[in-house]
Design a protein around this nucleic acid. Structure first.
Lengths: 229, 229
DNA sequence: CCAAAAGTGTTCTCCATACACCCATGC
DNA sequence: GCATGGGTGTATGGAGAACACTTTTGG
């Protein structure tokens, strides 16, 4: 079956840039291409948007096909449309970024035959298409956004310690934070629920666990509260 | 000439939401549709992306065709792709927002037969398609962005008074600011050039004129300075 | 001389920052 | 008992917020 249009149309794809926290490292999921162009190169997962499919649904589908993840923080990043970004034809790509925790979910590396892997953001291979540019844009967005929206929690398991949370901020902002000041600041916001549980299986004093109180956060947002680290 | 594809493709458009400052009011440019669907309704200017045209170039072309403006602040806002946003067929729209000054440039209301006009953001008519949603998104972005990026200047003529600048912030943030604190804060950043000129033709004491020192701003940005109101 | 907006300093409060030691636990 | 990270308080400086009057100019 073929479709006819009066004017040529750009192709429309979605790509996903999936950030995952693995112990003390921030990583990105990449897929090794098995076809030309850029055969053998690593690339962001993505694919065509079906004509009867929402953009976000397409991103979720790609994400689920590649990683098996279903519940995840997902947000539109930017739309990339440079004329030469794909050597085959004009392709405009709406890019979403996702934040996941690699310990909480058991994430399979890949669901199909393609080779998929997590790469530390400090040690990325050269990417196919304009995906290096997309990666830079995503990282910049992440750095900006984490300071004034509570997305740091999305990278952690539901229950986490304050040190883990601080570690997320230090990784993304690329600077050391003062432990006492960080704790005072984040606790003063009253958006964390202090649990009656402690860390397990660590070779030192076990830390208290907290969870993000999203309901409270929404209530406070509606009253003009503004998150800021 | 017709083009064939194996799978149906969504159509791709750009829309522009153009904010203009007119005296003490923030306005948006709208175009009255002369065709179905939504005949007679007001809508954001926009049109199809040509297959050999950059996204931003398409936005600039629409903008120039509708307003005659060529040099203008333009930035990608978001990509809207809801299945039912256009009743005729699946249309994905990459939306850009622009900031212009209505006094500096002589902006014609419209270049073609279509009816175009500026509407105060506080008094908008119901819009065609999902353009109400786009408008809300744009306004939210503007409110967020103006606080930490120097885009307020884009709405003013090259030479402006501090009161005019304060007025821009008050309009967009929808709150009154203290005159002395505002002046102290903005001047302390050293990103304004104090000109040897004063306001003309006002029925009261004439204020000093300033201009935005973009070069200095860039230099400071590279040294880690961060703008914030 | 009146109306309208320009321009200007000080005080107080609060928050960000800097900083070091003892505690609990597992091995 | 030792290594490892957990957990805690205070002092200081700087920035934001609140606040009112005089000056300049045109009409």
């Amino acid at each position: 079956m073929a479709y006819e249009y009066e004017y040529p149309r750009p192709a429309l794809t979605v790509d996903c840039i999936i950030f995952g926290l693995d112990k003390d490292e921030l990583k990105v999921m990449l897929i090794q291409r098995d076809l030309e162009p850029f055969e053998g190169r690593w690339a962001l997962p993505g694919g065509f948007v079906r004509v009867d499919e929402e953009l976000e649904a397409a991103a979720l589908r790609e994400l689920s096909e590649e990683t098996g993840i279903t519940e995840v923080f997902l947000e539109q990043l930017y739309t990339f449309g440079d004329l030469q970004r794909d050597p085959r034809e004009r392709v405009v790509s709406v890019v979403y970024y996702a934040l996941v925790n690699l310990e909480g979910h058991k994430i399979r590396a890949s669901s199909d035959a393609r080779n998929a892997a997590w790469f530390p953001i400090t040690d990325m291979p050269p990417l196919a298409f304009d995906h290096d540019k997309i990666f830079d844009t995503a990282l910049k967005r992440l750095k900006g956004k984490i300071r004034y929206q509570p997305i740091g929690f999305e990278l952690l398991p539901e229950k986490f310690t304050l040190s883990q949370l601080q570690n997320v901020y230090e990784l993304i902002l690329e600077k050391r934070l003062d432990k006492r000041n960080f704790r005072r600041k984040i606790l003063k916001m009253h958006i964390l629920k202090e649990l009656d549980e402690i860390q397990q299986d660590v070779a030192h004093r076990a830390a208290r666990l907290y969870s993000f109180n999203e309901k409270k956060y929404r209530q406070m947002m509606n009253k003009g509260f503004s998150f800021e680290i």
